[in-house]
Amino acid sequence: MNVVAFLGGRAWIWSFIATALVWLATVAFTGGTGGGQILTAALSFAIFTVIVGIGQMFVITTGPGNVDLSIPATMALSGAVTTKLMDTQNEMIALGVVVALGIGIGVGLGNYLLIRLLRIPPIIATLSASFLVQSTAIAYGRGLRIKPPPLLADFTTAQVAGVPVLAACGIVFTVVMGVVLARTLYGRSVLAVGQNMRAAWLAGINVERTRLFTYVLSAMLAGLAGLLLSGFSGGSSLNMGEEYLLASIAVVVIGGTSVAGGRANVPGIWGAALFLYLLVTMLNTFGASAGLRLILTGLIIIAVITLAGGGEQQKR
C-alpha cells in the first residue's frame, strides 16, 4: 500500500510506468523485433498530442470548468489556411508559421471574449467558437489537397539516430514550458487563479490577463500543431484535428494534472501521450478488432484515471 501511496502523490509516474509496460508487452508479443521502430513512431506521433496537450494543460490548470474544445477546429483552420498560403514553396514557411500563430491568437482572443463578455462556461464558449472556426475551415479548405512545402515535410519527418527531430525540439519546448509554469510570474498566476480566482484577484494578480494569455497560448499551440501536422502527413485535411479533442484532455489528466485546477504536471504530458499511442500499437499488434480496440482504449483510460485519481482524494 505504501507504494500505491507514493505513486498516488506523483500521479505522472503512472503514465511512464504504463508506457513502459505497454511497450514491453508489445515487444514481447513480437518476440523482440521492432521495439526501436515502435518507439520512434510513438515519438513522431506523440509530439502533436504533446503540443496541444500542453496548451490544454495550461487552460485546465486555470481552474474548474476551464477547457479548450476549439483545439481540433483551430488545427483544421490553421492547416487549411497555411498549406494554401505556402503553396508548396519553402520560402513561404516563415510566413506560414506567423499565420498559424496569428490564427491561434485570433481564436484564443475570440474564446476569451466569449467567456468574459457572455460570462458563459468555457466549455460552451470554446464549443460554440469551434463551430464557427470549423465552418470557416470547411468553407476555405473545401476540396483542397495541397502538398506542404518540401522543407516543412522534411523537417517534420526527419530523424537522427531513430529520434525524430521534431520530438527532440518538442522535449526542449516542454522543458521551457515547465520553467514558464514554475518560475515565471505568468506561471504562478495560472496556478493561483486555478486554486481560487477571487483570492488570486485579491492577492494582486491580474486574473483576466492571465486567463486571456492562457486561452491565446492554447489556441496558438493548436495553430502551430495544425501547421506541423499538415507538414508531417503530406497536406492538411479538415478532420485532422478530430482525435486531438479527446487526446488533449486525456493526456492532461493521465499526466497527473489536477482537473480541479491549480496543479499542473508538465512531464506527465509526454508520458501520457506516448502511452496513448503505444496502447493502440499494442492492440493492433495483438490483432484486436476495431471494436475491441476502442473498448480497451476506453477502459484503460478509465483505469489509469481511477488509479491516479485516488491519490488526489487522499490529499483533500
Partner: peptide
C-alpha cells in the same frame, strides 16, 4: 477559505505571491 489562502501552496508561497 474563499478569499484568502491558496490551499495547494506552501505557507511561503502564500506569503510571497503578492
Amino acid at each position: 477559505q474563499t478569499d484568502g489562502i491558496f490551499p495547494l501552496w506552501s505557507i511561503g508561497e502564500n506569503v510571497t505571491i503578492r
